[in-house]
Design a protein around this nucleic acid. Structure first.
Lengths: 245, 245
DNA sequence: TCATACTAATTATCCTACTAATGCGCAATC
DNA sequence: GATTGCGCATTAGTAGGATAATTAGTATGA
């Protein structure tokens, strides 16, 4: 029953192509390969990565589908500028959230986006949630309440927020769940889990769930905004801590 | 100088792979291929599309990078459910916006997302825009003001809104420009361009640009919210018209 | 100076062969 | 009769070579 929200992405698998995607993708995300850089010609790159040309080419195609590189005969394979990347791609987000790569700016962009999206999403959820949607949200909340083990807590937290996004019945908004998943996963690594924080955190989630279940749109909005505001404060102080180190 | 915002996407090109991506992608987006459906085995599909197996495979990899299909040895290539698709992918959006495919629900999802993102984006732009950002926004507005030819108008409109997103200096928010581009392109086909609408439209854009340039955050928010609210009304009535037909 | 044709470098495509993973059915076992 | 384990057949994955298509850069000529 503790299955992850993150579906078995094809990139997760351990094939040659997936490996190359991850290798090159992380190099680009970490700016080891900079925008405008030209990659070695196919055969050389394939040789140096010790894969066949086909596997390399398929990896290249995947990265180009994510907007990270472009190819053209004669000019070669080039790294595209970050503004062209599909930042909501689950893989891209996970590469960015890697502790060795993640910048404070990126984490702030994530929270900022959450603060914009999620309160309105809660409002819409309060308006449109079906019985099933409400059940999912409440069940996630109960799981958060029940367990204190950190691992389960994180899963339930993710489930809680994604259920709300789903309840908006807006497929574009629902795609933001990857931001939340990425953020919570990253945050989980840094956050200090003192009991006080956990208790008030739980209370705020409860308020959100209740408001949505009761169809109180403005309450749902306010409660979510409050939760994220508190989160923002925590994040900013954590980032300060990171910077000092 | 009238170059399009839409960059030369690799998928735009006319290669075999790009063609297959488009063909299959549109079939999936239009639900001609339904979630869970299994595609024919590689060789058969390649034959029926009259391309080599490699080109087909590369197309498959691109679509799987967009979250639309999944592959596994022995089980075959399957269409994934819409909630797994990267809805902010430019190609995916353009396929959805196709008149033959676009549903009213999808257009409403787009406007709804815009109404959530853009007012807050304008607020952030008012707070953070650099001189260059402001210059871009004002220049786009001037272009809107200057020309009445519809083609140029659309470009300038797109430029106006994307400039604001860029001015937030939040790379995740900036990715929403594809929603705007898609929406405006789709809207452009249906909208009735009467002078009155254009004039008030222009005035609202002017108010937004002014507020951002002046750093008046709340004004920028309000003006953008107003613009999108008016737009929403128009869209909804247009959708009603579509439904009647 | 500009236009035009040529050349060479690089990706794109196709093919053939082989490898690896795994769903399914059959048989052995409890 | 149900369950488990095993092998086979099917399917995607990997590899590498040959050829085509594209085009940046260069040379040529008006």
């Amino acid at each position: 029953m503790s299955k992850r929200e993150a579906k078995p992405l094809n990139t997760r698998s351990r094939g040659q192509t997936a490996l190359v995607v991850k290798t090159l993708g992380r190099k680009i995300a970490s700016a080891e390969l900079r925008p405008g850089d030209t990659l070695p010609v196919e055969q050389d790159l394939a040789d140096s990565l010790q894969v066949g040309r086909n596997s390399l080419r398929e990896a290249i195609k995947i990265l180009s589908a994510k907007g990270m590189i472009s190819t053209a005969p004669r000019s070669g394979t080039k790294v595209r500028p970050p503004e062209d990347w599909n930042m909501l791609d689950p893989d891209l987000l996970s590469w960015h959230a890697d502790p060795k790569i993640a910048t404070p700016e990126f984490l702030l962009s994530l929270t900022e986006t959450r603060r914009i999206i999620e309160p309105e999403a809660s409002r819409l959820a309060a308006r449109r949630a079906t019985r099933e949607d409400v059940a999912r949200i409440l069940s996630a909340y109960e799981r958060m309440e029940q367990f204190e083990e950190t691992e389960v807590d994180l899963d339930a937290d993710i489930q809680f927020h994604t259920s709300i996004l789903t309840a908006t019945h807006n497929p574009i908004l629902a795609n933001f769940r990857h931001c939340i998943i990425t953020f919570l996963n990253a945050h989980f690594r840094y956050a200090d889990k003192d009991v006080m924080t956990t208790a008030s955190n739980l209370a705020m989630h409860r308020k959100i769930a209740w408001a949505i279940a009761a169809g109180k749109e403005q309450d749902a909005f306010d409660a979510t905004a409050e939760l994220l505001e508190v989160n923002r404060g925590k994040i900013e102080s954590e980032i300060e801590t990171l910077k000092d180190q």
